[in-house]
Design a protein around this nucleic acid. Structure first.
Length: 428
RNA sequence: GCCCUGGUAGUUUAGCCCGGAAGAAUGUGAGGCUGUCACCCUUGAGGCCCGGGUUCAAAUCCCGGCCAGGGCGCCA
C-alpha cells in the first residue's frame, strides 16, 4: 500500500521512503537527470547524479518515459535549488507500468488539444491540471452542499431512475426494455421527491437524469447531474431564501477548502456578499421588450445575457413565470392563475437552478394534467399520494455541472463533466 | 432539425484566397551538453478526413459524405 504522498514530503526529511506516481517530466544534462514525479497530491523532483548511482539504476532511469507509473525508494533531502524545497535522491526505482507512446494528448498542457480529442482521451486528459483540479473542486463543492443540508436536518434520498411512464410532457425520454415492458430513464425525481417531502418534510437527492433531446449546445447534455431539494411547509420565497443561503455557504466554503485548486486554475473567488436580486418575469420582459420579447415568451440564453449586462456577474432570480412556461405540477398564484409561484436562478446567461411551489391537491393536479394534454392515468400513484393529504411544499433542481462550469470558468459543460453524454458521444 | 465555419505528423499549427517538391512547434528515436525546471544544441522517423469531378498537374478549385467547432431551435 502506498503510505506516503508528495504533499507530505516535508515531514519525511532525511528519511528514506517509497513514493509511487507518474513520470511527469524528465530533464537530462550530462552529469545529472531530473525526474519530475507526480502523484494525486503534487509533484516532486527526483535528482539522479550519474556519478553517484549504480549502473543498474541509471539504466532503469534511461528507460523511463512520460506517464510511466513507477515506485521510487529514495531519501528526501532539503534542497535550495528544487522548487518544492525538497528533492528525492533515489536508491531504487521500479517501473510498475509503461505508458505506450505516442500519448493521445500532451498531459503537461504545453500543447493544447481540441475538446473532442480531450474527451476521447478522458482517461489521460484528466491528468491535466486544468481538469484534475476542476473535478477536485466538484468533489469539495458537493461535499459542502451535503454538509449544509445535513446540518439543516435534510434527509438524503435515492429515487428510481427507471420509470414506467413517459409521464411528463416536454422533453423526450430514453426508452429501455425492462423485462419485456417499455420503461424510461427518469428525467427528474420530481414526483418521487414530492412524495418523500410529504413524509420526511425536508429531502434532497444528487443523481443523474436523462433527456433524449437532440440538443447541441454548450450547456445541455443527455445525462446530467441534478441536485434536487424538496421541502414541506415551505413557500417558493422560503425556497429562494434556502437556495441563496445554501449557495453562499457551499461556494464560500469551497473557495476556502479548495483554494489551492482554484489558485492552480488561476481563478479568483467570486464575491457573494450581496442579496440575490429577485426580479419578476414581468420586470424581466419589461427590460427585454425593446429587443422584441413579449409577455408569454420564454427567456432564452441571448435574453439572459442582455439581462445580466445590467446585473453583472451575479446570481439573480427570475420569479412568477407564466403558467404556460412552467410544468404542470407548479402552483399558480391564487389571485392570478396566469402566473405561477416559481423561479429560475441564473448566473450571467446560465440558468443554474429552477424551482417553485407545487400543486398539493389532486383535483387541481388532474385539471392541470388535462390542460397540458397529459395522460391522467399515468399519474395515478402521484394522485393517490396527494389524496392522502400532501402538505404544501416547494423545491428546486440545480444543475451541478452548470454550477461547476460557472465556478471554474469553463465555456462548455462537457469540460465540467467527467464522462459527458451528448447526442454524438456515448464513449468513453 | 436549421445556419455559418472548419478538417494538414500522436498533439497544436502555417500553407489554401491566387493549383506546380507540405514548413514549424511539441512529443518520440539517436547523439551531445557542469543542477535542470517550457533546459538547451545537433540529427532521424512521422502528416494533407473519405469518395467523386475539373486539370498536364489538386492539401489548394467544384460536388457529395462523414466528423468537429460556433450560433439558433428543441429542452422540467
Amino acid at each position: 500500500m502506498k503510505k506516503y504522498y508528495i504533499k507530505d514530503i516535508a515531514s519525511l526529511e532525511n528519511t528514506s521512503a517509497d513514493f509511487y506516481g507518474w513520470v511527469h517530466e524528465i530533464r537530462e544534462t550530462k552529469p545529472i537527470i531530473f525526474i519530475i514525479l507526480r502523484d494525486s497530491t503534487g509533484k516532486a523532483q527526483v535528482t539522479v547524479k550519474k556519478s553517484e548511482h549504480k549502473q543498474e539504476l541509471l539504466e532503469k532511469v534511461s528507460k523511463l518515459h512520460h506517464e510511466d507509473v513507477i515506485r521510487i525508494r529514495g531519501k528526501v533531502i532539503r534542497s535550495q535549488i528544487a522548487k518544492l524545497g525538497y528533492e528525492i535522491i533515489p536508491e531504487d526505482i521500479e517501473i510498475l507500468a509503461k505508458a505506450k507512446h505516442p500519448l493521445p494528448i500532451d498531459v503537461s498542457g504545453k500543447i493544447d488539444a481540441e475538446l473532442p480529442k480531450i474527451l476521447d482521451a478522458r482517461y489521460i486528459s484528466l491528468r491535466r491540471e486544468e481538469y484534475f483540479y476542476t473535478f477536485k473542486i466538484q468533489s469539495v463543492l458537493v461535499k459542502n452542499i451535503r454538509d449544509f443540508l445535513y446540518s439543516r436536518g435534510f434527509v438524503e434520498i435515492f429515487t428510481p431512475k427507471i420509470i414506467r411512464f413517459a409521464t411528463e410532457g416536454g422533453a423526450e425520454l430514453f426508452k429501455v426494455d425492462y423485462f419485456g415492458k417499455d420503461a424510461y430513464l427518469a428525467q427528474s425525481p420530481q414526483i418521487y421527491k414530492e412524495m418523500c417531502a410529504g413524509v420526511f418534510e425536508k429531502v434532497f437527492e444528487i443523481a443523474q437524469y436523462y433527456r433524449a433531446e437532440k440538443s447541441r449546445t454548450n450547456y445541455h447534455l443527455a445525462e446530467f447531474i441534478s441536485f434536487d431539494v424538496e421541502c414541506a411547509f415551505y413557500s417558493y420565497e422560503d425556497i429562494m431564501d434556502l437556495l441563496e443561503e445554501l449557495l453562499k455557504y457551499a461556494i464560500n466554503r469551497t473557495y476556502e477548502e479548495a483554494k489551492e485548486y482554484f489558485d492552480k486554475l488561476g481563478l479568483n473567488a467570486l464575491d457573494l456578499n450581496y442579496k440575490f436580486e429577485r426580479m419578476s418575469y414581468d420586470e424581466a420582459i419589461d427590460h427585454l421588450k425593446d429587443k422584441g420579447y413579449k409577455w408569454g415568451d420564454d427567456i432564452p440564453q441571448l435574453a439572459l445575457s442582455l439581462l445580466s449586462e445590467k446585473i453583472g456577474q451575479r446570481f439573480y432570480f427570475i420569479k412568477d413565470w407564466p403558467s404556460s412556461l412552467r410544468p404542470f405540477y407548479t402552483k399558480e398564484h391564487e389571485n392570478d392563475p396566469r402566473i405561477t409561484r416559481s423561479f429560475d436562478l441564473n448566473f450571467g446567461f446560465l440558468e443554474i437552478a429552477s424551482g417553485g411551489e407545487r400543486v398539493n391537491k389532486s383535483e387541481v393536479l388532474i385539471e392541470k394534467l388535462k390542460r397540458n394534454n397529459l395522460n391522467v392515468e399515468n399519474f395515478d400513484i402521484f394522485i393517490k399520494a396527494l389524496d392522502v393529504a400532501s402538505p404544501p411544499h416547494a423545491g428546486f433542481g440545480l444543475g451541478i455541472s452548470r454550477l461547476l462550469m460557472m465556478l471554474t470558468a469553463k465555456k462548455n459543460i462537457r469540460e465540467a463533466v467527467l464522462f459527458p453524454r451528448d447526442v454524438d458521444r456515448l464513449v468513453p
